[in-house]
Amino acid sequence: MAEKAILFDPTKCTACRGCQVACKQWNELEAVPTVNLGSYENPPDLSPNTYIKMRFKELEYDKSLEWLFTRRSCMHCTNAACVEVCPTGALSHHPLGFIDYNEDLCSGCGYCSQFCPFQVPRMSGSSITGIRKASKCLFCADRVTNNLIPACVKTCPPHALQFGDQDQMLLLGRQRVKELKAKYPDAYLYGEDELGGLHVMYVLPHKPTVHGLPADPRLPASTTVWQGILQPAGYVLAGLTVLGLGLNYLVARANVKSHGKG
């Protein structure tokens, strides 16, 4: 089956935040008690009860004002640090491309939350007792595997969110970037190449950093060194140790006997 993707076009987003509520409704997430924080943004951050949050930014340049609205949620990376580091297989690559999450399997280690280049997964529960679970956008796996589109996309009135086959979304995104270039020379399709391709792509009018996104997101070096070198090395070392000890046992037993000890 073709991989799926969400295309977010902030130039069409009106920040109604229907996506935030639709997400909470579909996933049955509770409201976060909060206060006005001197802006239209709320709740304060992603949390176990908030998988999507819209960010608002007032950008003033050349005497004109822009109000940028940026989606903050799981990017569903192809090279996903969370999947790399997840020890229990709770996080995995779904055949449809997104990062599938099986909450039952989660041990609560929090590696996903600490290694994500976008700081997306959040932990519920206590880090003191260690009893906790990760949480993040599920790509509405229960919907998309049943031929429904994700709740956030479904609710988006100005069609700033679109959903479809990844290659289709890529085409749409590139087309949209081309249209935007006239007005926004920095227009850029974020997620085409980043981390091997994101399954949530953004049509950005400005440079990613202006929208609060990392310019060049990568797997943290620690992930590569740890998962790519140390862990395999560990297996080899432990294996060699056991092998060596076994060998020693065989050799030593024969020799000690033939010595006619005693």
Binding site: R17, Q20, V21, N42
Partner: peptide, 25 residues
Amino acid sequence: IVEHWQAGQMTRNLPWSVELMPEMF
């Protein structure tokens, strides 16, 4: 504002809407 509706009773009683815009400003 988009988060609330008219004189407010239909949204100021809904936790999700209140979360989006919790306070008079």
